[in-house]
Nucleic acid binder design. Structure first.
Lengths: 333, 333
DNA sequence: ATGAAAGCGCTAACAC
DNA sequence: GTGTTAGCGCTTTCAT
């Protein structure tokens, strides 16, 4: 921290008013005569006075800071969400403290406690599922929390996301309609993979309902290389359609199959459950579930501002629409 | 901000010591008898006491918070840098306040002033070039600043990056060696495009030195679509080799040329000056300048911690090595 | 080794 | 409309 050269006290002295008046001017309180306001403003300008937000925070018990918990910076999925959050946050003059929980240097619980100690006014949570210790810490401090792009089983927190179940059913129905019967699911690692547990459940329900036999779930499919190496297994298992939870490994899979001379989508259909720039870069283009990531982030942040203002929420969970983006990795009959 | 249930004062009372002693225990000061320490620790545990970092910040004039200024969250290039920064920051117990300057809601200067008002202990700057007003604000508060992945003409700040000039010369030499003579350069928009001005200068110097005729600089090539649409222009201009400053538009260009039946790299060589996941997803794979982004971020953050501790720097600018990653978009003779 | 007390820079009653 | 005065929760001399 730097040496604080000029304080509210200096301004008060120079302007010949009390610090209370300066505070009023700084905070736009209307109970100040125009002349006084102008006089004070001039001094503020002249001395380059800038309020110390830390002192403001201590005195007012508001820091205009929100914590952001992401499972990983380098996943574009979260970057897109963050952008929506960031835009709304800056619109409402909030700063964002970024906390990544991908490196396990600190446990999620410690990271959250650190955020709470910094007296953030609220938290946006984008990871997969929250530990109980973390829940307790939030409860103890009653700091508002909103989940963005993920859901909360306990319905304890506000949340904004698409309807994952319907989306997944749409994908498998598409496969089914295209005549595919050996359907598979590839999921990534915990944490970064939203709603992983439920996704597997939905998948199995679909198989059962349609009498499609045993499940083929491929786990830990996270990187491009994971996707690339998945190709052989799929061929060995005679899979003819697969939903992959991220587009990066999906792109790896597409390239691997192309290298092997497999016809996509004729022999194997592929859909990615998330969509970033990568989906359009790869050839053939991926068919994806297009989540309105920016909007999810923006709506979540908007919801958080309401919570921080102690406003009532119309609904605790907001479900945003998704679109099935038809690319060239499905037949689209 | 939440209601602060338990303060250092409560702990002091419960433990039968003064708040000064509690403070010592919390901060690991050794001048406390073991018994006292244990007694206090027990109370802290029991009451779930957590120090209020805002109050600590005000009293100690250190917030253990650093500001991060990025030109855009959704550019993986900055995400990779941020990850290196984040890892080192959390190692040294610093929190990160993220400030994106891509939306022009707030001017860069205002964003920086906001960070300074929050009393950040230091700033990592990743944007292209800093406004003078921003420089003045930093100078007024003497907050340490380190540039990550970009350079500072004025040499006012610490910085960590690759040697852009040598890297660019390597690329154009590669083209030249492969027999290409109509060399072009595609650059993106200001801000997000590091070192844009110099890149053009280096390019022109190369042309001149090798008697390669007039320059072909294509500006505002930022998105995938920009790259895709660039193809026609390049063909019209008879360009036979081009360096593109980002891999996303480079991928668009590759796909466009492939769609037109142009042979890469025989008819046209392409090199991207940055490299992310996209470079390996596109077919043919991009030849890229591979910057050690994670390391640049990590080293920059490490440098900042030294500055924040008032340590002397061995060198103000650290230059990290890059590698020319040979893909399939150059002949590589 | 421990405690008392003075701030850190600001906000927010409460007076006038 | 403006000033006075307590704090906010903590760190940090300075005593002891």
């Amino acid at each position: 921290m730097q040496k604080q050269e000029v304080t509210i006290y200096d301004v008060a002295r120079e302007a010949g008013v009390s610090m209370a008046t300066v505070s009023r001017v700084v905070n736009g309180n209307t109970n100040v005569r125009k002349e006084t306001r102008d006089k004070v403003s001039a001094v503020i300008e002249r001395l380059h006075y800038q309020p110390n937000a830390v002192a403001q925070g201590l005195a007012s018990k508001k820091t205009t800071t929100v914590g952001l918990i992401v499972p990983g910076l380098t996943n574009l999925h979260f970057a897109e969400l963050s952008k929506g959050i960031d835009d709304i946050a800056s619109m409402y003059k909030y700063n964002i403290i970024l906390s990544s929980v991908e490196n396990n240097l600190l446990s999620e619980e410690k990271v959250i406690q650190g955020l709470l100690n910094k007296q953030v006014d609220g938290v946006i949570y984008m990871s997969n599922s929250m530990s109980n210790k973390a829940r307790e810490a939030f409860a103890r401090t009653n700091t508002p929390v909103v989940l963005a792009g993920t859901i909360d089983e306990s319905n304890e927190f506000g949340s904004v996301s698409i309807d994952f179940k319907t989306a997944e059913n749409d994908v498998f129905n598409l496969f089914y309609k295209d005549g595919k019967r050996k359907l598979a699911l590839a999921v990534g690692d915990e944490g970064a993979f939203i709603n992983k547990g439920n996704r597997i459940v939905y998948y199995k329900e679909f198989l059962e309902k349609n009498n499609l036999g045993a499940a083929n779930v491929y786990d830990h499919i996270t990187s491009y290389e994971d996707g690339y190496e998945l190709a052989d297994k799929l061929l060995a298992d005679n899979v003819d359609a697969i939903m992959v939870t991220r587009d990066l490994p999906a792109a790896g899979l597409v390239n691997a199959l192309t290298d092997k001379g497999i016809k996509i989508p004729e022999q194997l259909e592929i859909v990615s459950a998330t969509s970033t720039n990568i989906a359009k870069v790869v050839r053939p283009h991926l068919t994806t579930v297009q989540q309105p990531l920016y909007d999810i982030g923006a709506v979540a942040m908007r919801m958080l501002t309401k919570l921080m203002n102690k406003e009532e929420l119309d609904e605790k969970h907001i479900s945003l629409g998704y679109t099935l983006q038809y690319g060239q990795t499905t037949l689209n009959k």
